[in-house]
Amino acid sequence: MEIYSFTQSNGKRIKQFQSDFIMSRILHTEKPVHIASMYLEENGIIGFHQAVTAQLLLIVHGCGLVRGELEKFWNVQAGDAVFWKKGEWHETKSLNGLTAIVIEGEELDPSAYMTRSFCCYE
């Protein structure tokens, strides 16, 4: 499991086309991906299971706890992106609720665009 950051401070200011905004790149892929939104309500949980394919969980609102194969949980919050490789066991839960975007696909490499927030290899 790896945790990255896609917060505003990791972004780049865009000024083209009379624009003025900050964009934090997340990933690029040549192969198909599945993108979905997930809403964990109070005491919500995505149960302990193996990732069917590489998976990137982008926390966009709220906070929660994630883990890999060991029973050690890591705090995550809006702006964190959690990456699990195909076959990795993992779980996500939230006491107060969280909203996330999940991207699943064969060739995800978040390290190409995002900064690793902290390392939690197991």
Rank of each mutant, 00 (worst) to 15 (best):
I46T: 09
F48N: 12
Q55W: 11
N96G: 13
A51F: 08
E104R: 14
V66A: 10
S19A: 10
S5K: 04
K15N: 13
L108F: 11
I22G: 02
A78S: 11
S94T: 13
R13Y: 10
Q50W: 01
E91I: 13
E69A: 14
F118T: 08
S94C: 11
M1V: 08
P110A: 03
V33T: 04
K15A: 06
A112G: 02
A78C: 07
F6G: 00
H34N: 15
I35P: 02
M38V: 14
D20I: 10
F73W: 12
Q77F: 11
A100V: 05
I3R: 06
K86I: 05
K31C: 09
E88M: 11
I59E: 02
K85N: 12
M1Q: 04
G79P: 02
M114F: 12
E91L: 14
N43A: 01
I59M: 01
N75T: 15
T7K: 15
Y4K: 00
V60I: 15
V102S: 11
S24E: 03
H28F: 12
E106K: 05
Q55V: 04
I46G: 03
R116P: 00
T53M: 12
I101M: 08
K15G: 00
R25N: 13
E91H: 13
V76H: 05
F17Q: 04
K85L: 06
Y39D: 07
L57C: 09
R116G: 00
K15W: 07
L65T: 10
G87D: 07
V52M: 14
